Amino acid sequence: MFMEERKAKILEILESKNRVKVNELTEKLNVSESTIRRDLQDLEQEGLLKRTHGGAVKAENTGFEPTMAEKEEVYQEEKREIGKKAGELIQDNETIILDAGTTTLQIAKNIKAKNVTVLTNSMLIALELSKNKDVEVVVTGGYTRRETLSLVGPLTDQMLQRFKADKAFIGTNGITLQDGCTTPNMHEAHTKGIMIQSAKEVYIVADHSKFGKVCFSLIAKLDQIDAIITDKNIDRGIVEKFVQHGVEIICE
């Protein structure tokens, strides 16, 4: 069976049952696990499926957005790992923008620097940082999105435009070389874009599952960011492709 035929068969199987395991595909298609994993990686990069531990699931539509509670339940260890790495990049006396999200919430929990000012549109991050005596918190105005417990809209954007931070840490729902960083909601995307414009250094924070995924609204092209912070479970082939295109990946 040729590679394209094999990939088409994988998508056909996914269409019928929504989820599939690598060992199941090796049996059905009579190829090695390494071959199947390469096929799944290629299909994920094309946005046709989403890899999971040991298999793959159907790609979500570009407008789908899980709730904050749903996000908190997945890739918890990876998000804690990213939060620790990002926290180490924050230095004494810096001003920081923290986007709303479960991964950026982990950054808030890992700020060890002194005399830090954090500007955020997240109610959960503001609450978390209220416990840290070494951090001054500035919360944007705006209207509340129940799905993400974030503040967005014209008031939020106006507030953000009045500041220039040292670093911004921005979450994303999808990252590809072709489409950059994307998210399902256009209001969230716009606010994230303003945050990027309001910082000297910009870091995208995203666990490995976000790579190869494309959502409805563009946050930023990859040439607008300084680096992507992800977890150690990211496929090394993906890292190499991004590095070849001049994108720094922090994953160690």
Rank of each mutant, 00 (worst) to 15 (best):
F2D: 14
M3D: 01
K9M: 05
L14Y: 10
E15Q: 08
S16E: 15
V20I: 15
K21C: 08
N23E: 14
L25M: 13
L25Q: 09
T26H: 09
K28R: 15
N30K: 15
V31I: 15
V31R: 09
E33D: 06
S34A: 12
T35A: 09
D39F: 05
D39E: 07
L40A: 09
E44Y: 01
E44C: 11
Q45R: 11
E46C: 01
L49M: 02
L49I: 02
L49P: 03
T52L: 02
H53M: 04
G54N: 11
G55M: 01
V57P: 04
E60R: 04
E60A: 03
N61F: 03
T62V: 05
P66S: 01
M68W: 13
E70C: 00
K71V: 06
K71N: 14
Q76S: 06
Q76M: 05
E77I: 02
E77D: 08
E77M: 01
E78D: 09
E78T: 03
R80F: 00
R80V: 10
E81R: 05
G83F: 05
G83W: 06
K85T: 02
A86M: 07
G87S: 08
E88D: 09
I90F: 03
D92N: 15
N93D: 14
E94P: 04
E94T: 06
T103Y: 09
T104H: 00
Q106G: 01
Q106E: 15
K114A: 14
N115S: 14
T117P: 03
L119Y: 14
N121M: 07
M123I: 15
L124F: 06
A126G: 08
L127F: 03
E128Y: 00
N132M: 11
V135Y: 08
V135Q: 08
V138W: 07
V139G: 02
G141V: 02
G142Q: 12
G142H: 09
T144E: 07
R145K: 15
R146L: 13
E147G: 05
P154M: 06
P154N: 03
L155Q: 12
L155I: 15
L160T: 11
L160M: 11
L160Q: 07
A165G: 07
D166Q: 06
K167H: 09
T176P: 11
L177Q: 14
L177Y: 15
D179A: 04
D179N: 13
D179H: 12
D179Y: 14
G180I: 06
G180Y: 06
C181W: 01
T182C: 04
T183M: 02
N185E: 08
N185R: 06
E188V: 10
A189E: 04
G193W: 05
G193M: 05
G193F: 00
I194C: 08
M195A: 13
I196G: 11
K200H: 13
K200V: 06
V202A: 12
Y203T: 08
A206G: 06
S209A: 10
K210V: 00
K213N: 08
S217L: 01
A220P: 08
A220S: 10
L222Y: 07
D223H: 13
D223R: 08
D226L: 13
A227G: 10
I228P: 02
D231H: 04
K232D: 10
N233D: 13
I234H: 10
G237Y: 11
E240I: 13
F242A: 12
F242H: 12
F242T: 12
V243S: 15
Q244W: 07
G246A: 14
I249Q: 10
